[in-house]
Design a protein around this nucleic acid. Structure first.
Lengths: 111, 111
DNA sequence: ACAATACTGAAGTTATCGCTTAACTATTGT
DNA sequence: ACAATAGTTAAGCGATAACTTCAGTATTGT
């Protein structure tokens, strides 16, 4: 259920923005509140919340609110899905190159 | 030289569009001309060329023109760089979880 | 030489993005 | 009770993105 093309779309779109990638990077070192995520970013808290919503909609980040603080954490399964998409394409290409190499090697010294 | 944040930015931005991912997908099965790339896409050839330029600027695709046909192929190194970025963040998170698990296991049955 | 092919480039349009400000709600600390 | 903290929501705005059409340029096949 993670290969849903619509979800993949949201994930890559989410990763396309440098601020959002910075947020993911921060979260890869551990959970954080919204203000903690915002702290290194040169933009309003409001803007950060909007980025966070994009990340959450994409499935890359999950958040949980306790009292007045919203704690955010990475969803590794979603990261894995994006990773997997790229990996499959790259491997398909590289396997193709290998087969081509074999073919050339076999054909080289023939009658 | 592949971890240049600007290049990473271009790559993720390039992958954010479904049409461009479809083009990358097609190219993962082997080189193709611009028209071949355009064929399954419901848009003008001109639009495809624009997408292709984005892909090329990002380093994900390399093209070469012979006569009147431009042949496009995937650049696996660039794909690997994007893959790597995601992988590092995911692993950082998972290692963190592991350490946390170890800590809890050690602390569990103590005086 | 002429027509068809395979792009290329510019201009214009519409929609979406990434922000800002401002006003608001809910929780917590004194 | 009051103020400070933490986040939310809506409106608006300028910039960019994803197209379109149309007019052009090389190349190639007949």
């Amino acid at each position: 259920m993670l290969h849903d093309p619509a979800q993949l779309d949201l994930m890559f779109q989410a990763l396309a923005d440098p601020a959002r990638r910075q947020m993911v990077d921060r979260l890869s070192r551990g959970p954080a509140s919204v203000s903690q995520l915002a702290e290194p970013l040169a933009m309003s808290l409001s803007a950060v919340v909007q980025h966070l919503n994009v990340l959450e909609a994409s499935g890359l980040v999950r958040t949980e609110k306790l009292g007045r603080v919203r704690t955010c954490r990475i969803e590794p399964q979603a990261l894995r899905a994006a990773e997997h998409w790229i990996n499959e394409r790259r491997l398909a290409w590289e396997r193709r190159l290998d087969r081509l190499g074999d073919f050339l090697a076999e054909t080289k010294d023939e009658p």
